[in-house]
């Protein structure tokens, strides 16, 4: 099911004018911010498809930047987000690409900062403010940000997924959906886990302590927004 509940149909509460181009865009931006984990000093924003044609008329640029500032879809500051971000020291570049994309409303965000690795996130806005994240740092994954989402970057080795899920299970955390991708056998891998409730910090620390774990991000947009 692409749309999971009633609030993905009635909702979100949002600043107009377009649920795909404004609210969805804000959620993709906010998902990227959560994945990156901190204020990004530099962000490259590349629009594809219908996004590329009409982003400025819909304020998609403002919405994505609002998301990068961790604003929700109905935050009135969306209107001024670009100037706010620039005042705070975020350097922004907007580009469009004619490359075909899987979904008409697709955007790629590259987040950078001093002394750390870049994160690239590709997301699509699929209607009514709902989104699908389809790639992170060249890993092909698929998730919606409708649930608290745990991203575990690790080495591909037998049993590692079981190790991770065993820890979640021992803490009573239920997994709703899971996606795993790897760059090659025994190479880098990414496991994305959507959970019914936020994962307690102690469990995250236990997962971090496993062998072959590179990095963990907890991306949760459900904290101050209704599902969807």
């Amino acid at each position: 099911m692409r749309f999971k509940d009633v609030f993905s149909i009635i909702g979100p509460s949002m600043i107009g004018p377009s649920s795909s181009h404004t609210a969805g865009a804000a959620r993709i931006g906010r998902a990227a911010r959560k994945i990156y984990g901190e204020f990004p000093e530099q962000v490259e924003i590349i629009f594809y498809g219908s996004f590329a044609e009409t982003y400025s008329g819909h304020g998609s640029d403002l919405a994505i930047v609002a998301g990068l500032l961790d604003y929700n879809t109905d935050d009135i500051r969306i209107r001024d987000s670009v100037s706010i971000a620039e005042t705070m020291g975020m350097s922004l570049s907007f580009q469009t690409s004619k490359k075909p994309s899987a979904h008409p409303n697709t955007v790629m965000l590259k987040l950078k900062g001093k002394g750390r690795q870049e994160d690239s996130v590709i997301g699509a806005s699929i209607g009514g403010g709902n989104i699908e994240i389809s790639a992170i740092n060249d890993f092909d994954v698929k998730f919606t940000m409708n649930y608290p989402t745990l991203l575990v970057f690790h080495n591909d080795r037998p049993g590692i997924v079981a190790d991770i899920t065993a820890i979640l299970g021992s803490g009573g955390v239920n997994i709703g959906c899971m996606d795993v991708d790897r760059k090659g056998r025994n190479g880098d891998a990414l496991t994305v886990i959507e959970t019914d409730e936020a994962v307690p910090l102690a469990l995250i620390e236990r997962i971090r302590g496993l062998q072959d774990i590179h990095r963990i991000c907890e991306a949760d947009l459900t904290d101050n927004e209704v599902k969807g």
Partner: peptide
């Protein structure tokens, strides 16, 4: 019209169709 001003609305199911319901 409020939607077009970047005002606050509820997507029903989208912002483009937020006036009907």
């Amino acid at each position: 019209e409020v939607n077009a001003t970047m005002g606050r609305i509820v997507a029903t199911p989208t912002a483009g169709s937020c006036g009907i319901i």
